[in-house]
């Protein structure tokens, strides 16, 4: 159409990843029944912890510095966040490795990590546009959820939870690559979800844990996924430490994507050895 310039090339380069994102989005759109049932699934998740915490707070007004209302908000918001930072690229990588599709991807002029990141962002985009809103409505109707403390906190919460999307994506990519080293990692994928639920503070706030655990989780990326944005929403971190938490999230994004690239390089060697 127009004359081909370097900028066009650059845009074409970007748009191929946008294309992966678009396809991923459309794939999700194809499963409408699963979608409705998925909303219901989140209601079940929240309900379990809603009743647990309600029963726990029978006599006490505050436990570990949280009121019941804060706890219920924490849990509900936690699952709302999960409804959009979740993606299944780990499973996609595993399937591609097992079906041999990965060989086709290797000969394409695309960056392997960016391709899956684009796909993952496609998932998240789909979720945030079509999946999360009904979950928010149902959760706010069924369970008692407080509004954010201020508009500023709301904006920072949105920023922080978009960082969560990237952190989760980076971790999932690394886990997916494990399938190149192991024959079947179905159990790992299943357990991974549960372990991240615990270590990210989704099930229970990190500051409920014993001190040694808290300092350990400070050295791990998981608390940046759920605990950090939720603390911001509840207004439990203010001022300088708020920006410190956001900075920590950014740092983790850089580290995790760096590790992802290193692991991929190791995997390439492994794929070459397997040959054929």
């Amino acid at each position: 159409m127009s004359t081909y310039t370097i900028t066009d090339d650059y845009i074409a380069n970007l748009s191929k990843y946008a294309e992966y994102m678009r396809i991923s989005f459309q794939k999700m759109l194809a499963y409408r029944v699963s979608y409705l049932i998925g909303v219901f699934t989140y209601v079940i998740h929240v309900a379990v912890y809603y009743f647990l915490y309600k029963a726990l707070y029978m006599e006490d007004v505050t436990i570990k510095g949280y009121t019941l209302q804060e706890m219920l908000t924490y849990v509900s918001l936690g699952w709302i966040c999960k409804s959009f930072y979740l993606n299944y690229i780990d499973r996609e990588i595993t399937d591609d490795v097992q079906s041999g599709q990965v060989a086709m991807d290797l000969i394409k002029p695309v960056d392997f990590q960016l391709m899956y990141v684009a796909r993952g962002l496609g998932h998240s985009l789909f979720r945030i546009v079509l999946f999360t809103p009904p979950i928010i409505v149902v959760t706010f109707l069924l369970f008692s959820v407080s509004p954010p403390v201020s508009l500023g906190h709301m904006m920072l919460f949105i920023l922080s939870s978009s960082f969560s999307v990237l952190i989760y994506l980076g971790i999932n990519y690394i886990i997916g690559l494990l399938s190149i080293f192991f024959l079947s990692i179905r159990g790992v994928l299943y357990s991974k979800n549960l372990i991240i639920e615990l270590l990210s503070g989704l099930l229970i706030p990190i500051d409920w844990f014993p001190p040694w655990f808290q300092s350990m989780s400070f050295l791990l990326p998981f608390q940046s996924i759920a605990y950090c944005p939720l603390q911001i929403y509840l207004g439990r971190i203010q001022g300088l430490s708020l920006f410190f938490s956001l900075g920590l999230q950014l740092l983790w994004i850089v580290i995790i994507f760096g590790i992802g690239r290193i692991v991929w390089r190791l995997c390439q060697r492994r794929i070459l050895i397997q040959g054929g």
């Binding site: 647990l52 029963a55 726990l56 357990s191 372990i195 639920e197 615990l198 409920w208």
Partner: peptide, 29 residues
């Protein structure tokens, strides 16, 4: 790997329950 993650899987809920009862006197219902 399967055995290891299997054990880890059980530990998650165990740790959750342990942390949930923040004080000795707490009960759930």
């Amino acid at each position: 790997l399967g055995l290891f993650t299997g054990v880890l899987f059980q530990l998650v809920t165990l740790i959750f329950i342990d942390v949930l009862f923040a004080k000795q006197a707490l009960t759930i219902g």
